[in-house]
Structures are given as C-alpha cells and as structure tokens.
C-alpha cells in the first residue's frame, strides 16, 4: 500500500469519525440540554454577564474556594 492510498484511507476514516463525533455532539447538546453536572448549557452565558471577582461562579472549581 503506497502513501497515497494510506492518505486516502486515513482521510476517509478520520472524516467519518469527526463527522460522527460532531453530530453526536449536536444530538447531545440539543437532547440533553444539560451537561453531566446538571448545568443547562445556556447558563454558561452568565460567565460573561456576571464576571466580577466577587460574583459566584457558574460552576465553581471546588466548594472550599473561599478561604
């Protein structure tokens, strides 16, 4: 198998994979609407809207963040 053939198979396989992943992602986003932590995706817009350092994070990194 020469390099051009490998190139073609590689191209095809990865494109199929990435297409499936993308459509899987779209399906996940619009069917579940929430991520695994239970946050609605649309809540994440608040990261920009409430971005003062004293605002509460949408999804805090840990509960003991405020020392």
């Amino acid at each position: 198998m020469d390099i051009a053939q490998l190139q073609a198979y590689g191209y095809f396989a990865l494109t199929v994979f990435l297409t499936l992943a993308l459509y899987g992602y779209i399906y996940h986003l619009y069917s579940k609407k929430k991520d695994s932590d239970g946050h609605d995706y649309e809540e994440y817009s608040n990261m920009a809207l409430h971005d003062d350092i004293s605002d509460t994070p949408v999804n805090a990194i840990s509960d003991d963040k405020e020392k």
């Binding site: 390099i3 051009a4 490998l6 190139q7 590689g10 191209y11 990865l14 990435l18």
Partner: peptide, 16 residues
C-alpha cells in the same frame, strides 16, 4: 488533533 488533521493529510504525503 482537529486542526492538525488537514495538514497531515494534505501536505505531508505530497512532499515525497
């Protein structure tokens, strides 16, 4: 991975 894919397929094999 996603952005390097195009370069790998398109450019590298042609060099030979």
């Amino acid at each position: 991975v996603v952005i390097a894919f195009a370069g790998l397929i398109e450019i590298v094999p042609n060099f030979a």
